[in-house]
Computed example of a mutant assay.
Amino acid sequence: MKGFISGLPKVELHLHLEGTLEPELMLALAERNNVALPFSSVESLKAAYQFDDLQAFLKLYYQGAAVLRTEQDFYDLTYAYLERCKREHILHTEVFFDPQTHSQNGVAFETVIEGIIRALADGEACLGVSSGLIMCFLRDLPEEDAIETLKQAISYRDDIIAVGLDSSELGNPPQKFERVFAMARNTGFRTVAHAGEEGPAEYIWEAIEALNVERIDHGVRCSDDPKLVAYLAEHQLPLTVCPLSNVKLKVFEDIGSHNIIQLFRQGVLVTINSDDPAYFGGYLNDNFLAVAKAFDLTKQEVAQMSENAIRASFLSAERKQQLQQKLDHYLEIQFRPVI
């Protein structure tokens, strides 16, 4: 199964670029930019990667993001992740970035996005990894801040495929951002939102009804509402689930108690993703393997997860067909009878 997953053509739809900041790169950038961190070594930094909840993680996440200062920093961060995609046979990725996190550190919007889009272009040209860029609003900040960020993004309309919503979920319901999401849709951006990770199933309904999103990021609390599960299955509204992240942040006690396969078998369009892999100890292949082992999945079921991600992506119909053909070819070889 490990070898099958390693070579399986895959698509990742829930990945925070800032969450791919490995300890080695974090410390290198801190030294490059003369940013003080309360960690003296890779070992002491990794020791801090024990979280009781989402808020504990976010504290370290924002601390790490403070080392990102220059366009080259964002390029290096992004390209390192794309190299990982190449190694893991991820053919397409749709990545999140949080410009408000960096503006709070005095880093201009243009500095952030120019480094990222340059790396994404090089990643496609040199590594063969296609990508889409999703700009997230921080839900613990006022909607007015999100509106100002959206205005800055207008001139990069050709580089950003969608807007999203992330950060502290509890106490920050999706409907708080109804106006800015309407503005984004009217401008031509597609929409996604984190909902139902720590927040209740009601937040998923709000993301659907108030924000009119096309994908739900996480969404695992939908199981608390059978009508919602039925709705998600009927409308094939995708969930971008992050199993190892959910366990690391105590959303589930362990992989075996995760509801991803229950939802999968109820007909919900679930996908497997890695979220913030530098902090949660697992990139995409690790997440696939953890789920496959915990639930004794067949290779066909694992492959269906990859097909789901192709379907749920924001790619053109033509590009989706290309990726599906690559997946089908891989499976044909894998399941070819040995004579």
Rank of each mutant, 00 (worst) to 15 (best):
V270L: 03
G282S: 06
T111F: 06
T20S: 04
E12W: 13
A153S: 07
A184G: 09
A290W: 06
K86V: 12
H194G: 10
V229S: 06
L120D: 11
K59N: 13
D286Y: 15
L21I: 04
G219I: 07
A121E: 13
D122W: 00
A290G: 00
A184I: 06
S223H: 14
T111L: 02
P99Y: 02
Q325V: 02
V112M: 09
V229T: 08
R265L: 14
A312E: 10
P38Q: 02
Q322W: 01
P277I: 02
N186H: 09
G164V: 13
A65C: 10
E178L: 12
E206A: 07
Q300T: 12
L297Y: 03
F288N: 04
M135W: 05
D286E: 11
L133Y: 09
C126A: 15
G64C: 10
F335Q: 04
S155I: 06
V338P: 01
L239P: 14
L269Y: 05
D275F: 10
R319Q: 07
R32N: 15
E94G: 11
E83I: 13
D98R: 02
L170S: 07
I339D: 15
G282C: 02
A233F: 00
G282M: 05
G128N: 08
E318K: 03
I134F: 01
V220Y: 00
A292R: 04
L13Q: 00
R69F: 00
D122P: 15
A290E: 12
F264P: 02
G115K: 03
P243D: 10
Y49N: 05
A210W: 14
S316V: 01
A48Y: 14
G106M: 03
D140S: 05
I90M: 03
L17H: 02
Y279T: 13
